[in-house]
Amino acid sequence: MYEPIRSGRPTAGASSGIPHRSREEELDIQLAGHLSALLAVTDELRGLEPSPDLDEAAERLAEQVSRLRSGHAPVRTPAPVAAGSDPAALHERAHALAGRALVVAASRADTTVAILAAERMDAHAAVRAKQRKLSHAG
């Protein structure tokens, strides 16, 4: 019913039996998660607004997720285009996810992913600016 009282602290060389990951491994997991989420949003945008830029971005994102996951490719299922999907909201979400990926990539000094994330942030910011300009002009 109660947890037994533990006597003493583990010694310096003793293993507690709990698996521990290094900071680098934790950052890899976190970065792969952000990139996977960005890839999912990118695939959804590709369904709404097909473009070579989004196709290339999706492939580059998938490559990096695979690299971070020791060769395990991300699971990608074609996202059905939902009625009433808002491309502006998807671009905003993609921009935020790319920003999170950029922060983690910078902290683990992954230049390749940092550049990719910054490029995606710029691309989504440009689309958002264009959409705002069109909505104010119309």
Rank of each mutant, 00 (worst) to 15 (best):
residue 65 V to S: 02
residue 96 A to Y: 09
residue 78 P to H: 08
residue 102 L to Q: 11
residue 50 P to R: 05
residue 101 A to M: 03
residue 54 L to V: 07
residue 27 L to I: 03
residue 73 A to E: 09
residue 60 R to A: 13
residue 53 D to E: 15
residue 87 P to V: 11
residue 103 V to K: 02
residue 56 E to A: 08
residue 78 P to L: 11
residue 57 A to D: 12
residue 103 V to R: 01
residue 25 E to H: 02
residue 72 H to P: 01
residue 66 S to W: 09
residue 112 T to M: 02
residue 34 H to L: 01
residue 109 A to I: 02
residue 82 A to Q: 15
residue 79 A to N: 09
residue 67 R to M: 09
residue 59 E to K: 08
residue 110 D to V: 00
residue 54 L to D: 00
residue 49 E to R: 15
residue 39 L to W: 00
residue 102 L to C: 03
residue 101 A to P: 01
residue 49 E to W: 11
residue 60 R to Q: 14
residue 54 L to N: 09
residue 57 A to C: 08
residue 111 T to R: 03
residue 55 D to P: 00
residue 68 L to W: 04
residue 42 T to S: 11
residue 62 A to P: 05
residue 88 A to L: 06
residue 32 A to K: 08
residue 49 E to A: 11
residue 67 R to E: 14
residue 88 A to T: 14
residue 77 T to V: 14
residue 83 A to M: 13
residue 55 D to W: 10
residue 66 S to F: 08
residue 23 R to N: 11
residue 57 A to M: 14
residue 104 V to Y: 00
residue 29 I to T: 10
residue 93 R to G: 06
residue 79 A to T: 15
residue 47 G to Q: 07
residue 45 L to F: 03
residue 72 H to C: 01
residue 43 D to A: 06
residue 42 T to R: 00
residue 38 L to I: 01
residue 60 R to G: 06
residue 110 D to T: 01
residue 22 S to R: 09
residue 108 R to F: 01
residue 103 V to D: 07
residue 91 H to K: 03
residue 40 A to D: 09
residue 75 V to T: 10
residue 100 R to H: 10
residue 57 A to S: 08
residue 32 A to Q: 03
residue 61 L to N: 04
residue 111 T to H: 00
residue 92 E to G: 10
residue 56 E to Q: 12
residue 75 V to M: 11
residue 58 A to K: 10
residue 99 G to F: 07
residue 86 D to I: 08
residue 85 S to A: 15
residue 52 P to F: 13
residue 37 A to E: 02
residue 69 R to Y: 03
residue 21 R to A: 09
residue 78 P to F: 03
